[in-house]
Nucleic acid binder design. Sequence first.
DNA 1: GATGAATGAGCATTCATTCAT
DNA 2: GATGAATGAATGCTCATTCAT
Lengths: 200, 200, 200, 200
Amino acid sequence: MRRKEGDKYKEILDAAIWCFAEDGFDKAQISAIAAKAGVATGSIYLYFSGKHHVLCELFARFWEKLAGDMELLDQTDPLDCLRGQLGLFFDRLVANRPLAIVYLREHHRFIESKQAGGLEWHQKCLELGVSVYRQFADPVSAAQGAMSPDSISISQAFLFGGVRSALEFWLGNDLPPDRIRSQMLTMAMASLLAVTQGTP
Amino acid sequence: MRRKEGDKYKEILDAAIWCFAEDGFDKAQISAIAAKAGVATGSIYLYFSGKHHVLCELFARFWEKLAGDMELLDQTDPLDCLRGQLGLFFDRLVANRPLAIVYLREHHRFIESKQAGGLEWHQKCLELGVSVYRQFADPVSAAQGAMSPDSISISQAFLFGGVRSALEFWLGNDLPPDRIRSQMLTMAMASLLAVTQGTP
Amino acid sequence: MRRKEGDKYKEILDAAIWCFAEDGFDKAQISAIAAKAGVATGSIYLYFSGKHHVLCELFARFWEKLAGDMELLDQTDPLDCLRGQLGLFFDRLVANRPLAIVYLREHHRFIESKQAGGLEWHQKCLELGVSVYRQFADPVSAAQGAMSPDSISISQAFLFGGVRSALEFWLGNDLPPDRIRSQMLTMAMASLLAVTQGTP
Amino acid sequence: MRRKEGDKYKEILDAAIWCFAEDGFDKAQISAIAAKAGVATGSIYLYFSGKHHVLCELFARFWEKLAGDMELLDQTDPLDCLRGQLGLFFDRLVANRPLAIVYLREHHRFIESKQAGGLEWHQKCLELGVSVYRQFADPVSAAQGAMSPDSISISQAFLFGGVRSALEFWLGNDLPPDRIRSQMLTMAMASLLAVTQGTP
DNA sequence: GATGAATGAGCATTCATTCAT
DNA sequence: GATGAATGAATGCTCATTCAT
């Protein structure tokens, strides 16, 4: 069976999450990741081109799965859908604490990475968000520029920032995630509507 | 006795901002900071106990100055005041691009630092925000829990996350900061009101 | 798997002897030891936990071999046996000039080291000496305290001091070791008998 | 008054003894010596040319004083006189524990030092010993070579080694110095006589 | 494919010494 | 003479990556 081989890839990624979360990307040691994954140090280089690549693959898989799940969301009501998207993003990270830590601290390395494959999955998620966002267009707000690419991007960044804050707060406090999630979504939706609902 | 020449302390902090922004905290070299500051490597240790200390002092000075400026804001209208606070925070970082980068990437080290002096200035800024926030209390929203410490903290985190997103966006795009600032504040205020204005 | 090539462990120890002898422990550079041993700097840390550990292993191996050789000595005559023990110690160091230098200058670091393995071999050698020493007991000297633990320890220290002096002298002068060895043993035996032979 | 100036020289030497004893010569810091002496770091260089010079001056003063005291010893009986010399040496170091430590660990640096002034005082002490030693000459032992320069030097080295051992033992054990001194002298004298008393 | 011993460039920090005041 | 801020060369140890087996 070749199950073992396929597993190593995943074992390494899982081990990397823990190590990156614990020590940060720069301080985390490849040899520690290998040990935690139960493989030899050198084996990591059979699956990844280096430490940076491991990190990028981590996020690539994350965004890939998220994109898949986002597509399954009910798109009947734009507001519900967007709420669902943000909630899904939040839930996925809350379900994996160390991954949430790595996301908060090291995701920028993924974004800034030049040759990283996997950015297309991140892009896909952003686009899924935009496509729902566009459905909020009404003549007045559109006239006010709410559907300009810039405006949309800023809104989207703001919403992601909101989830980010919620995660950071969750990590640092002992509150049930639902409590945080709920207030986060309330605020996110309000901020969204403030931009997309024209105020005549 | 040879007097301390010039303002080496400040030169080092300024140089550190550039180096941390360029290379990240872990990769940044003390010797590079020293070179940029125009002092000898060893001189850094006359003013700071190590690389980590330099980073913490950086943020301590930032929050100290910000706290001072926040206190000067007109407090007549709570909404205006809060908008002013967030805008001030945004403006201070937009005015210093590399500092903004360092803030986004390395501020968590300051927060997580155990023995860092200067955390009190950060705390002070948070408290100034909370004290304005409390003025939004109305009977209905208060009854709904909007003024519970948890709720306030979450809101505050969300608002900071909003500014954070705006900064990140500003760094990655070529939009005039005012354009970003304006939409950020619109969204921030809306999200705030959504929590503090009871919906009977 | 790549096997450990050659006897890097031993190469490093041999190289360390030369470097420690030449420069002293503190000034000796790990990189110089590595170069002389023909290995990379980092490889030293595959075999030893640090510079101090290298030094301690050096002495541990020395005492281990010495203990083995001391046990082979003919124990028929106590006086001959003790002479043989001291002579053996002297000969082993005379046979390795740089090791003799390191012994004279740095052995105290081994003794003072808290967690050094190998101290048991040193202890073993001391005990082998004491067990022979005890055979000198005669009723009169014993009554005078010559076999009290303190007295034995002092005698032993004195005898070791004698060999030490002989080595130091040998290092600093161009005399054949046998000439020095012979006078040293004469004096050592006389000093020994002065304590263990009761003077009624 | 110029007492202050003369004092600094001595303050530095005294401080150096403590620091060298505590940390060893290489690890001891000039700045720590200065601090302990109550002077500025730079001031040390007004009195000494460097760290090594401080160490050498330390021993130069020691041997200078010892030479003076040795000359005062009663020379009536050679055996008593030699016993007195060794005892004096032992006592001087027992009276100053940190100095004893520095003597045991770092004296070789003084001996090996090329340009150190003060070696003549050390030489003086050795010669005072030799001149007493020569008085043991009897026809038989002299015929056996006991008064050859080599033989004398070896004997002297051995005797110094004996005192050295006694000091090392004293430092490492909780025995009253007199107890150690006494046995040391017994053994030293016996070893001496074994060489100088011809055995016909 | 898998291994892990071997590599060696890289870096924060220290500290003897200098010298402007 | 006295000071102590400033210097910058020096070094033990780490760890991502390689590659012989």
